[in-house]
Simulated scan of single mutants.
Amino acid sequence: MAQVIANDKRWSLQGKTALVTGGTKGIGHAIVEELVGLGAIVHICSRTKSDIDACLLDWKAKGFPVTGSVCDVCSRPQRQSLMETITSLFHGTLDILVNNAGYATPTSTVDCTAEHFSEMMASNFESAYHLSQLAHPLLKSSGAGNIVFISSIASFMAFQVVSVYGAAKGAMNQLAKNLACEWAKDNIRVNSVAPGVIRTTLAEEVFFFLLKCKS
């Protein structure tokens, strides 16, 4: 699909640079391959080095221009280190930032601990907020920057045992609106995408938990 679209110059990302957080699995992995198919040069991050190495080996065999580095997006110092890597790798500019990394651990509201709340907000919202801040000068330097937040249908609809996750994704949607207005003057476009249920490892874990609760 990406190869067909890439033949249409209106959809070409030839030579554009992109950072995709959480790019080794699920939606993030698919986004990387789509961006590359459209001509982009991509850098990914993940918490697990072995996952990065496996993906890079596969992409290298396919001739995909993808690099990667370890980053736990819940860690502020690691986010700063990631953006330093991007600054060096892409020579001070960045065309596309895809804030994809995040996860949902099923927990009922009454059982939600302070630690769980902090983890969900850090992985799903705080990381995206801070990375957008750090990326701003690079996106501005590109002259036509783009930020894409990967939100969730849980930001609009109510589901059991993911109240904090849904709230974090809802905050992400509002952040996208604010940044779209605030950074329009810098030629930075901002969008939030809220997919429904997609069969990924994360989704399977959540649904297994829900089925277990009903049994």
Rank of each mutant, 00 (worst) to 15 (best):
T87R: 14
I96V: 14
V148M: 00
T109R: 11
I5L: 14
L38F: 11
V197D: 05
T21S: 08
G26E: 05
G39P: 13
V162L: 13
L38W: 11
A158Y: 02
L175F: 00
G63Y: 10
G68V: 03
I31H: 00
L138M: 14
G166C: 01
L13C: 10
G92E: 07
C181E: 12
M121V: 13
G15C: 08
E84R: 08
Q78P: 05
F207D: 15
G23F: 04
E204G: 12
E115Y: 09
L82Q: 11
F159P: 09
T109G: 10
C213K: 15
L175C: 02
G22D: 06
L131C: 12
L131H: 03
M1P: 10
I44W: 09
A61E: 14
C181Q: 09
G196Q: 03
K16M: 07
F125V: 01
A104K: 07
L138K: 03
D58N: 14
D58H: 13
L38A: 09
I86Q: 06
A167V: 02
L35E: 02
S152N: 05
S46L: 12
A144S: 15
A180M: 04
Y129K: 01
K140L: 15
V161F: 12
K169A: 01
M157P: 04
V193D: 00
S215Q: 14
E204C: 11
